[in-house]
Design a protein around this nucleic acid. Sequence first.
DNA 1: GTCTATAACCGGATAGAC
DNA 2: GTCTATCCGGTTATAGAC
Lengths: 230, 230
Amino acid sequence: MQRAPETRELGPKAKRTRAAILQAAIDLLGEVGYERATIRAIAERAGVSTGNAYYYFGSKEEFVQAFYARTHAEHIVVARPRIAAAHGLRDRLRATMSAKLETVEPYHPFAGVLFRSAADPTSPLNPFSAASREVREDAIELFREVVVGMRKPLPKDLTAELPQLLWTWHMGILLYWVHDESEGRAKTWRLMEESSALIASAVKLSGLPLIAPLRRKLLRLARELTAGAA
Amino acid sequence: MQRAPETRELGPKAKRTRAAILQAAIDLLGEVGYERATIRAIAERAGVSTGNAYYYFGSKEEFVQAFYARTHAEHIVVARPRIAAAHGLRDRLRATMSAKLETVEPYHPFAGVLFRSAADPTSPLNPFSAASREVREDAIELFREVVVGMRKPLPKDLTAELPQLLWTWHMGILLYWVHDESEGRAKTWRLMEESSALIASAVKLSGLPLIAPLRRKLLRLARELTAGAA
DNA sequence: GTCTATAACCGGATAGAC
DNA sequence: GTCTATCCGGTTATAGAC
């Protein structure tokens, strides 16, 4: 029985073929966008048949996912030193998200397709899917670094749950970005800056006597609802 | 020149044909789900040709949108009396969202497709699109009723911006719901209940001296970023 | 002009030979 | 592991009926 493309082990020759197809896909996606980057065109550019492309990639979405994984890797590389150089929570959030927005900007023209599966549980591209697990966990890990490496350490309960919550925040910003047609994506940048400040302020205030119960409730909710799947 | 299907005026006969196609689409979507409800099958059930279906609906997504508009209309009918019967903000939020969750539950099996265009700016189905404007504004209007009809009126600044923000909250809950495979959608219900309480508490506390500046910032941000498009 | 049908196109996906 | 041939369904072109 034929195993799924992603889980198959490949000989050296096959690896090269796979890499060639992937490169062709990424190039073409970048050059002509999603719709015009047909499987046939991708295969042709890679010098293989369409059928062969499907030996390595189960669907067109998998190409997009590979693409997405790449932008994510770029993001981490750009973000890490910036995070290390920033100290307050607000600045660390801005460091993280500014890197993200810069990294993804070139792909805005077809970002809709990139992200449209976000809400489709049947799609491997949705950020909660098993296929996206690795990328998602890397991203959450990055937010863990954001909260763990602070000069003035945060309380333990926040340290535990914030990474998850901040990842959600970051996905929300991206969703806004996808729809943002303002000059230079000014609105998204504004949203990112202001919400970074708001989050930092809220974290600071969350220790106040009247506020603390709210914070406890929120963190408990976050913990319980991210336990299983979604 | 041929006008777009949605904006065309129809004679009485044509209206019946359109209605028949739409009904067939809704029935079939409910019975066999998105993938198996092919345009050909829909047209056949309605007793027309596939070409004719495209005279009335510009794409398969438009059927889904019609479907979505219908569940939305159902939601308003169910929600309104419940909202009127509740008094505190928390209860009014729960009234609104419980009606929503009950209304959409039957469609959970293919909700992914229903909502997958949420992130695609090129899709008429995305909740920010022009095509969705009416449905979206109705929904925001419903949240306006939630905040306006309270026994103890809320401050003016909140009354102005909360409807928009609550609509966003409600979309977030739906996004979670789409991915929620827990028994009886228990996690989503939990999230809905707890976040209703959290929002109500936050609104109450937002008048405190230390908190008020945060609230002002948040409301200003919300106002400015929803001014134009996205 | 308004509506309906048939035939074809296109691209994602699959089957099966080599 | 690679190809060719084919399927399938969304979509479009177009002819013609009312």
